[in-house]
């Protein structure tokens, strides 16, 4: 096993960037899960696992990760045109108003954080900013490698989604931890799938999830913003 030293600053920064305590409000977005549970599509822990697995392997691996990778490359080369294209593409791939809001609200919060930490953020702040792209900008600023940055990105996504399911299904704390253990092996799998996605093939819609997310816009009683 590779030794991790206490001076491994990139690892520490990755932990900071992926922590649920990062003030970007990730806990506020269920990304359609709240509606799927309300509609009775999801009732049990194993159904949560299936839902998240699909989202992870078919959508996040095909959309968010390839964009994260290209963002970090563009940032390393100070290619601001490519960076803007990543931001446009990330937002353009969001299938509903609330999935787009999830990305842009967290993006805006991440932008404020980068500014207050004194980190460079070259994108114009007049338009919407994508969280995935801002995460990539932060990771590149902190010289974190793409593969570990991707793992941190996925982990914080997974933790937020499982936390949402814990509140909504509801699940016990132990069940939630079991779910995390069960889904962890999918994270490297998602990263390896993302590696082969060509630029033109970025993006993949999940029609069920998109319909759930659109349904959430008019859900009568709701805890989450998406």
């Amino acid at each position: 096993m590779a030794a991790i030293t206490t001076t491994d600053t990139a690892l520490l920064r990755l932990m900071q960037l992926s922590s649920v305590s990062l003030p970007i409000g990730g806990y506020a977005f269920s990304q359609g899960l709240e509606y799927a549970i309300e509609a009775g599509w999801i009732k049990r822990s194993d159904q949560v696992a299936q839902w998240l697995e699909q989202q992870l392997l078919y959508s996040v691996a095909q959309t968010d990760l390839p964009i994260l990778k290209r963002t970090m490359e563009a940032m390393a080369q100070q290619d601001h045109v490519a960076l803007l294209r990543c931001n446009d593409l990330a937002l353009a791939c969001r299938e509903t108003r609330e999935l787009r809001l999830t990305d842009s609200a967290m993006g805006e919060a991440m932008n404020r954080l980068l500014v207050s930490l004194g980190l460079p953020q070259p994108l114009p702040t007049s338009g919407e900013l994508s969280y995935v792209v801002l995460f990539g900008i932060a990771a590149q600023n902190w010289q974190i490698d793409y593969a570990v940055a991707a793992l941190g990105f996925l982990w914080s996504w997974l933790e937020n989604q499982v936390a949402a399911a814990t509140k909504l299904v509801p699940l016990g704390q132990t069940q939630a931890q079991q779910l995390l253990v069960e889904l962890q092996p999918l994270l490297p799998q998602a990263i390896s799938r993302a590696a082969s996605v060509e630029e033109d093939d970025i993006g993949n819609g999940l029609q069920g999830l998109a319909i759930a997310s659109a349904g959430h816009e008019t859900q009568y009683s709701r805890l989450f913003r998406s």
Binding site: G32, Q50, Q54, L57, Y58, N204, L206, G208, L209
Partner: peptide, 13 residues
Amino acid sequence: QNRGLLQGSAGLR
């Protein structure tokens, strides 16, 4: 790789 979305609850159900 993603044939599972044909039947999946988040996919084409």
